[in-house]
Design a protein around this nucleic acid. Structure first.
Lengths: 133, 133
DNA sequence: CGGAATCCAACATGATACTG
DNA sequence: CAGTATCATGTTGGATTCCG
């Protein structure tokens, strides 16, 4: 993800704007763990998922990066955070309506990836000079 | 974009694999200039676009990064590169069929971004404690 | 014209340790 | 349990320069 300059103005329709909405969106969902977090939360929707549960369902994510990722999503209004004031505290996350709506095009991208990434791998293999037999 | 380990095995259907197709795809289209290059090429499809033309249509891109971005797309089989052996040389780029198919879900993501990024900006403004009046 | 090579700064991520 | 703080590191992307 590139850095986030302080709330740049969104200019609708001009996708070639240096701060075009598409690239700013990709700056968010393109971070390492965001798409997986959204997917886990989308599958649980409209239910909630706790922090530890998310961590278990996203292999390889560190505590810090999951925390950073989730708070970034909360800040963007894509995820809602609910804290049970118990000891120890329980923190629950769920997709907001906005987050759920984002999951629609994201799911399409997932489908494309599952269907076509093998072809990208093949293309890379050929570029690497790997024989095809 | 994170680095690209040497052609990891694509395991279909397991989106939670650390090397899941979706994240590997996002590692590619999530780079700063990729989505814009794909969009320009998609709009010109099935026609070709020359290097200088691409550069003009993508404000802010450096020569180096456009070159890197395009070669990465070529390597992935998403873009085809054609060189006219003239002096000086003319280099033309176009989306492959695979690239065109990727533009479908990508266009959906663009639409979402244009329609909803303003709400993400609002959410950020509220998080920053900016008064809403 | 369309690069390639180099250097460099900024940032994203990760490991580790600590806390309410 | 669910963080936060700090430090270490690799990568991305940009500026510049040179080339066929």
């Amino acid at each position: 993800m590139t850095s986030r300059p302080a709330r740049p103005t969104t200019r609708r329709g001009d996708v070639f704007d240096p701060e075009c909405p598409t690239r700013r969106l990709l700056d968010r969902i393109g971070t390492k763990w965001t798409s997986m977090a959204v997917k886990v939360l989308a599958e649980a929707a409209p239910g909630e998922v706790r922090f530890a549960e998310l961590r278990r369902r996203i292999p390889g994510v560190s505590q810090k990066m999951l925390s950073v990722t989730l708070h970034s999503l909360v800040r963007d209004g894509l995820v809602a955070r609910r804290v049970e004031p118990t000891v120890p505290p329980r923190v629950h996350y769920r997709l907001t309506d906005l987050g759920l709506s984002l999951d629609v095009p994201l799911a399409a991208l997932r489908t494309w990836a599952e269907e076509h990434m093998a072809r990208i791998d093949e293309a890379n293999a050929i570029s690497d000079g790997v024989p095809e037999i």
